[in-house]
């Protein structure tokens, strides 16, 4: 039996750059590695990526495992699972952290089953149990109605982390790390899927996942025109417009702006929920927001239990006055 030691972070790349969640993974990974008194490793997989190794060192990695091969230019499940299996068999980490992204959602479960270990998806908190030294993996379940703390019987203990749930370290250019190259050893014939095309969808304005401010509307908005008023406020605050599920189901706004279990999970600085009651299906998409501000006619609405600030009343009357006042304050 191999001895499992240290913490490894799979650092996801896009267009030749580290995605932000990679630095977040290294940030929490460093803390866990320090608690265990062990090393932190970064794993980089792709094509023509050797220039990124040092960057992961500045974010805390003691060792960087680099798998650089033209066949690995695009993420493909078969090739990446095979490469990660090879890397992990070599480094046998006690903990492996990935990001809960479209890649992480695909790669993490496949890899866990391949390695005959477990993965806990979408963790918002990670800590080492002081007694057992096992990883305590906290994640929202039941659409955010509850939190569960899991432990795993097997190594590596794999997790994916939710976007913006963990804090990256300040990059430190003076940090030193060891860079280790690993051969991919993948044959093109082992990749059963074929990427035919990759389509970037243009989004007018700011993407909802990236926006610092999101103004979202619920069933009570009642029409596409109603969302026009939300748009006005969002523009004023340089933010984006979102919605709970009913407005999307009714076709008032496109499906791509849906926030919740069946939509996007976001964590903006400011989330303004207008005429949203706050079902668990919706809250699972926005509960990570720094400041939730709610406008609802029902003072008992569940959204007020999550909100930091609120106003009770018909949004058609509250919102225009709110927007007008904000305009005034911003102009002053």
């Amino acid at each position: 039996m191999a001895e499992y030691k240290g913490v490894a972070v799979y650092c996801e790349l896009t267009a030749g750059k580290l995605v932000p969640i990679s630095a977040e993974g290294l940030g929490i990974g460093k803390k866990l590695a320090d608690d265990l008194g062990q090393e932190l490793s970064a794993v980089l997989v792709g094509s023509d990526i050797s220039n990124l190794a040092q960057e992961t060192v500045t974010y805390g990695a003691d060792k960087v495992y680099l798998v650089d091969d033209p066949l690995l230019k695009d993420y493909q499940t078969d090739s990446y699972v095979a490469v990660m299996q090879k890397v992990l068999n070599q480094i046998t980490p006690r903990i492996l952290i990935l990001g809960q992204t479209d890649v992480g959602r695909d790669l993490a479960p496949r890899l866990a089953f391949r390695l005959e270990t477990t993965v806990t998806m979408d963790c918002v908190e990670l800590a080492i149990d002081s007694q057992s030294k096992r990883l305590l993996q906290t994640k929202p379940v039941y659409g955010g109605n509850a939190q569960a703390v899991f432990t795993s019987d097997t190594d590596p203990q794999m997790v994916t982390i939710r976007t913006k749930a963990m804090t990256p370290l300040e990059p430190d250019a003076s940090r030193q790390g060891e860079i280790i190259n690993i051969e991919a050893g993948v044959e093109a014939s082992a990749i059963r899927t074929r990427i035919v095309d990759r389509v970037m969808e243009e989004v007018a304005g700011i993407k909802i996942e990236d926006a610092e401010v999101v103004v979202a509307g619920g069933r009570g908005i009642g029409s596409p025109e109603g969302f026009g008023q939300l748009e006005e406020l969002a523009k004023l605050l340089k933010g984006a417009v979102g919605a709970s599920r009913p407005p999307c189901d009714n076709g008032w706004v496109p499906d791509t702006v849906q926030i919740g279990l069946t939509g996007k999970i976001i964590a903006p600085e400011i989330y303004i929920a207008v005429a949203i009651s706050g079902s668990s299906q919706h809250l699972s998409g926005c509960s990570g927001s720094k400041n939730i501000i709610a406008i609802n006619k029902d003072a008992e609405a569940n959204i007020f239990r999550q909100a930091r600030f609120g106003a009770v009343g018909d949004w058609k009357k509250v919102l225009p006055a709110f927007t007008e006042k904000i305009k005034e304050l911003l102009a002053a």
């Binding site: 239990r305 609120g310 225009p320 006055a321 007008e324």
Partner: peptide, 14 residues
């Protein structure tokens, strides 16, 4: 939750 008070919904909004 800190509620904004007001005589009317408009006032609460402001």
């Amino acid at each position: 939750c800190e509620f904004a008070e007001g005589e009317s919904p408009e006032e609460a909004g402001a």
